[in-house]
Amino acid sequence: MTSLHNLMSMTDRVVLVTGGAGHIGRAISAGLGELGASICLVDRSQPALDDARRELQTETPDLRVETLCIDLENETQRVGMVEAVTEKFGRLDVLVNNAGFVGDSTLSGWAVPFEQQSIATWRRAVEVNLTAAFHLCQVLAPLLRSSSHGAIINVSSIYGNVGPDMSLYDGTAMGNPAAYAASKGGMVQLTRWLSTVLAPDIRVNCVSPGGVARGQPAAFAERYVARTPLGRMGHEDDFKGAIAYFASDLSGWVTGQNLMVDGGWTAW
């Protein structure tokens, strides 16, 4: 019988994490690195990638971390990742589509009432949050197929599964754009579609995070927490276990699933 220790081991496996320089990207990369994986961080800022690599290697000195500075809105750059990963590692075992177009209150046509949300910004969000994930799964599938442990993990959101409670945003500059919800909802269904099409060579699963505490306005945070059964917003470390489960052989007979990691937000 295989031990849990061996099932969770990621030794000699290569994991590519998009949005790798971000808060969640760093946390899940650290978790997989602790299990023995080599990590390829993908993001659009080389200084941010360099900082993430230093942080990860400070925590785990033996961890191999490579970086790829890629704009996921650029189709040509996405295609180029195949050659880059092959040159750096010679293989790929796990793809984590973690990057997200989340915008902010200064982005035109984003955190505004529905009637004012812009088509141009919608297109950018869908390109990064959904089209890029589809494309990376497509171009990297041959590498993943040649691994005996190929896995794809898509990162969606609670808002890819349920509608927003707009009263949470009253009195703040925050918003909840349709493009974010639609693109993240697409990730959930893309997961199901890929799980049957890429089987049995590649397992495909999804994680849907709830809200993460990042200095949001106090009024929003208080309302959010009051609506969350576990009584707090999320932290980056809350997602390490879910990603490690889907990336490792702990979930060797699991595909097509969407795991809500949201403190119970969607249980009401």
Rank of each mutant, 00 (worst) to 15 (best):
A21M: 02
L250D: 07
G163C: 12
Y224L: 12
C137G: 15
V15G: 01
R124N: 10
T76P: 00
G163N: 14
L56I: 01
A242I: 10
G25D: 01
V17W: 00
A173V: 13
L4Q: 04
I243W: 05
V254H: 09
L194I: 05
G241W: 11
G163M: 14
I28P: 00
A213K: 13
P209W: 13
M174L: 15
G263C: 11
V85E: 04
A199M: 07
R64A: 04
V15K: 00
P177R: 07
A218R: 12
Q138A: 07
V204G: 05
L41T: 01
E75Y: 08
G80H: 09
A111T: 02
V126A: 12
C137M: 13
R214Y: 07
A179W: 04
R26I: 01
N176K: 13
H135E: 15
W268G: 14
S147Q: 14
G22S: 05
T60V: 10
L143I: 08
N161T: 10
L35F: 05
Y245I: 08
G22I: 02
K184R: 11
F114P: 00
G186C: 06
W193E: 06
Y169Q: 06
T196L: 07
V126K: 02
W265P: 00
Q116K: 14
N74F: 02
T131F: 05
A133W: 01
E127C: 07
D249R: 14
Y224V: 02
S248H: 12
M187S: 01
L259Q: 10
S9G: 08
E59S: 13
C69T: 15
I28L: 15
S9Y: 06
K88F: 03
Q216K: 09
D201V: 05
F134R: 02
S118Q: 12
H235E: 14
P217M: 09
L16V: 13
L4V: 13
A244V: 11
L140K: 04
F239M: 15
G31R: 05
V65A: 03
P142W: 09
L194N: 04
A132D: 05
F246K: 11
F134K: 01
A21S: 15
M187V: 15
A247F: 10
L143R: 09
Y159M: 08
L194R: 02
G185H: 07
I24E: 00
D249V: 03
L136H: 04
A173Y: 03
S146Y: 02
